[in-house]
Simulated scan of single mutants.
Amino acid sequence: MTNTTTTTTTTTTTTRRLIVLDMAGTTVADGGLVERAFARAADRLGVEPGTPDHAEKLRYVRDTMGESKISVFRHLFGTEERAQLANSAFEQAYAELVDGGLVSEVPGARAAIEELRADGHTVALTTGFARVTQDAILDALGWRDLADLTLCPADAGGRGRPYPDMVLAAFLRTGAVADVRETVVAGDTAYDMLSGRRAGAGVVAGVLTGAHDRATLTGHGATHVLDSVAELPALLPESS
């Protein structure tokens, strides 16, 4: 009688994901440049530093981090003409600060993106800034070819966060996954979390390197909260 031993080999398949990452505060450290650029824009429109009006407007800018900047200025300055003037001044000021070498990657961000893509995931970088500012940041960091796709609000119909439009645009444009639940959204603001949840993403990860704290991120729908985007590659196998 012959004994036959059968060996079964189990192959583990990693789920391919679409990864939608915010820039400033999540993958990019800008050291508070949004507030500095806002101060310059506000000054151009006659909002004096130290006044209650200036303090109120700055508080709104902080509370709406992650939102399309033109939407913020429409709220703050009322008319479309003044909003566009403020937005142009803001974008110019931010670009000048970027050109001055005042942006850097969040430690480990580039390596995390490279690891995610090497593992077969598709990565999109999104922002609430205009395209000209997004491109200035990408150029300053040498990130033009780092991600599969970059999107600003104008690339997704004009509405930024907390609308789901940029996440859904990434889903449609890349065709990387068949189900929106295979999308991962990561960001540092409440609006990032709302955008991800409204888009139907399966993982909505808040990171603690930017504007909002753990309680705020969780309260606006984060499924996970990470110290940094550098931890994201390790999270994905656990969430498959």
Rank of each mutant, 00 (worst) to 15 (best):
P52C: 12
H54E: 14
H54V: 09
A55S: 15
E56R: 15
L58Y: 09
L58N: 09
R59P: 03
R59N: 11
Y60D: 12
Y60G: 06
V61R: 11
R62D: 11
R62V: 13
R62C: 07
D63L: 10
M65N: 12
M65E: 11
E67S: 09
E67H: 13
S68H: 13
I70T: 05
S71K: 01
S71I: 03
S71L: 05
F73Y: 15
F73D: 02
R74A: 00
H75E: 10
H75V: 05
H75R: 15
L76G: 00
L76T: 05
F77K: 09
G78Y: 13
G78H: 14
G78R: 14
T79G: 13
E81I: 01
E81T: 12
A83E: 04
A83C: 05
A83Y: 01
Q84C: 02
Q84D: 03
A86V: 02
A86Y: 02
A86L: 06
N87E: 03
F90N: 01
F90Y: 12
F90I: 02
E91M: 03
E91Y: 05
E91H: 00
A93K: 06
E96G: 04
L97F: 13
D99G: 13
G100E: 02
V103D: 10
S104M: 08
S104L: 10
E105M: 13
V106P: 12
V106N: 13
G108L: 08
G108N: 10
G108A: 11
G108Q: 12
A109P: 11
A112K: 14
E114A: 14
R117P: 07
A118S: 14
A118V: 10
D119M: 14
H121C: 08
H121G: 06
T122V: 09
T122N: 07
V123I: 11
A124H: 06
L125Q: 03
T126E: 08
T127Y: 02
T127F: 06
T127R: 03
G128M: 02
F129E: 05
F129G: 00
A130H: 01
A130I: 06
A130D: 10
V132K: 08
V132H: 02
T133L: 07
T133Q: 03
Q134S: 07
Q134L: 11
D135H: 10
A136P: 02
A136I: 00
I137A: 03
L138P: 06
L138A: 15
D139H: 15
A140K: 11
A140H: 11
D145F: 08
D145R: 13
D145E: 14
L146N: 10
D148I: 04
L149I: 03
L149P: 07
L149H: 04
T150M: 06
L151W: 04
L151G: 05
P153G: 02
P153V: 03
P153A: 00
P153Y: 01
A154F: 00
D155E: 01
D155F: 00
A156M: 02
A156S: 08
R159M: 08
R159A: 09
R161S: 10
P162I: 09
P162A: 08
P164C: 07
P164N: 07
P164T: 06
D165A: 07
D165W: 00
D165H: 08
M166N: 08
V167E: 07
V167A: 10
L168P: 01
L168E: 04
A170L: 05
F171R: 02
F171K: 04
L172A: 12
R173K: 10
